[in-house]
């Protein structure tokens, strides 16, 4: 039994065989910053925010299985600086205009910026041309804000069984695509009650007619950090 233990920043963390470092950490109340990871879904390993140092090498903790005796560094100045840089890149690679975004205050990307003390974008802005699809009567798809976490892809495929979303293109042209002949969301069978409709960590998929319902000061991350919220969700 004592074999199934790793250490994270010097703290002993037990794991069950098959658990990832992220799963073991969250179960033990140790927070590892993450955006594309959602414990409900198969790990994706794309945002790299959860990168930790495992036995001297960097690895995504959401996909790396825990193994006996692993020595993991997580909350270090260097790793948090990397996480801040990744968050800055996610901001400049899209068109994230927090002042008028309906998701503002409830957005995980924004909350991660606050948590990591991001004061500026650091990198030059891309201002990429991105599409907005308002064809669905109840759901808005705004790719300006997409960070390609693919949670909508996973939710629609694995929970809703509808395969509404996919990913197309390469490199900076990678984007979420809609699985209908017209490519429009309004021509799919997606429903506002689908899991894919409220899994988006940013403001790329929004339910229509619910914008700005919650006043400033009462939004998810107005007083609580993303760490507080994620640990509460994990029951810690």
């Amino acid at each position: 039994m004592s074999d199934n233990t790793i250490t994270i920043d010097g703290q002993a963390v037990p794991f069950a065989p098959g658990q990832t470092i992220m799963e073991a950490a969250m179960a033990a109340g140790v927070y590892i910053p993450h955006l594309c990871h959602n414990p409900e879904f198969t790990p994706h390993g794309s945002c790299k925010l959860c990168t930790v140092t495992v036995n001297g090498r960097n690895a995504a903790s959401c996909t790396m299985p825990a193994a006996p005796g692993m020595v993991v560094q997580n909350d270090t100045e260097e790793l948090n600086a990397n996480r801040r840089a990744l968050t800055q890149m996610l901001f400049v690679e899209g068109n994230h205009v927090c002042p008028f975004c309906e998701k503002s205050g409830n957005c995980q990307l924004q909350a991660m910026g606050y948590f990591l003390g991001m004061m500026d974008p650091h990198y030059d802005q891309f201002y990429p041309p991105r599409d907005v699809d308002a064809s669905h009567p109840d759901i808005l798809l705004d790719l300006n804000r997409c960070i390609l976490c693919e949670l909508c892809v996973r939710a629609s495929r694995d929970v809703d069984g509808k395969n509404v979303f996919g990913v197309t293109g390469r490199g900076p042209h990678t984007r979420i695509t809609v699985n209908s002949a017209s490519g429009r969301l309004g021509d799919t069978d997606m429903a506002v009650t689908d899991r894919a409709a409220d899994v988006c960590p940013v403001g790329a998929i929004l339910k229509k007619r619910h914008g700005f319902e919650v006043p400033i000061g009462q939004r998810t991350y107005d007083h609580k950090t993303i760490k507080d919220v994620h640990m509460e969700e994990a029951g810690k």
Binding site: V97, P99, Y127, R130
Partner: peptide
């Protein structure tokens, strides 16, 4: 970061 006026950038 440019803010609201950048909406005209594309």
């Amino acid at each position: 970061n440019g803010g609201v006026p950048t909406v005209r950038n594309n």
